[in-house]
Computed example of a mutant assay.
Amino acid sequence: MPPDPLWIVGWDAFVSVLVAQFDPTSPACFGTWRARPAHANGQPAIAGYVRRSGESIYRPQVLNVFRIDEGKIAEITAFSPEVFVSFNLPDSL
């Protein structure tokens, strides 16, 4: 995920990364997250915002674009927060 290139294969690996990022006791935790729905090239997407410890504003972190195949998420492509302006997403929450 931005800002570091990362390739995750499989449900178990994906969940373990998410658990670490959302668990406030984990060293991998970025902070408190909020999500906002979006679309990119006709595909569903989620804009992720994070509020770091000691801050009051949620700042853009990642735009996740989902490729759906047979009603299931087949692939997630993550984009850095610089693309938020192109999708008319707010620069903070």
Rank of each mutant, 00 (worst) to 15 (best):
Y58G: 00
T32C: 03
F30G: 09
G10I: 06
T77P: 03
F14V: 07
E75Y: 11
P90S: 11
S92Q: 13
F30W: 11
S53W: 02
E82Q: 11
T77D: 12
Q21Y: 04
F87A: 06
L63I: 02
F84Q: 01
A13Y: 04
L93I: 15
F22E: 06
I46F: 06
W33P: 00
A45M: 03
A78P: 02
F30A: 13
D23S: 12
S80D: 15
V50R: 00
R59S: 10
A35L: 12
W11K: 13
T77N: 12
L63Q: 02
P3W: 04
Y58L: 03
A20M: 08
V62R: 03
I46L: 14
E70W: 05
A47I: 01
I68E: 05
L18W: 09
R59Q: 09
A40P: 00
V9C: 07
N64G: 10
R67T: 15
A45L: 01
V65A: 04
W11D: 07
N88K: 14
V85W: 05
F14E: 13
P24Q: 08
G42W: 03
G54V: 00
F87Q: 11
F66Q: 04
T77L: 15
V85I: 15
R52L: 03
V62S: 10
I46E: 12
T77K: 10
V62F: 05
L89N: 04
L63G: 00
I57K: 13
S56N: 14
S16Q: 14
S92N: 11
D91Q: 10
S53H: 09
F79L: 09
V83D: 00
M1D: 05
A47V: 03
L93D: 13
D69S: 13
V65W: 03
G42N: 03
T32Y: 01
S53P: 05
W7E: 12
P81E: 06
E55H: 09
P27L: 03
V62T: 14
R34C: 08
A28W: 02
P44V: 02
D4G: 05
D4R: 09
F14C: 15
I57S: 14
S80T: 12
I57F: 11
P27M: 02
P81F: 01
T77W: 08
D69Q: 13
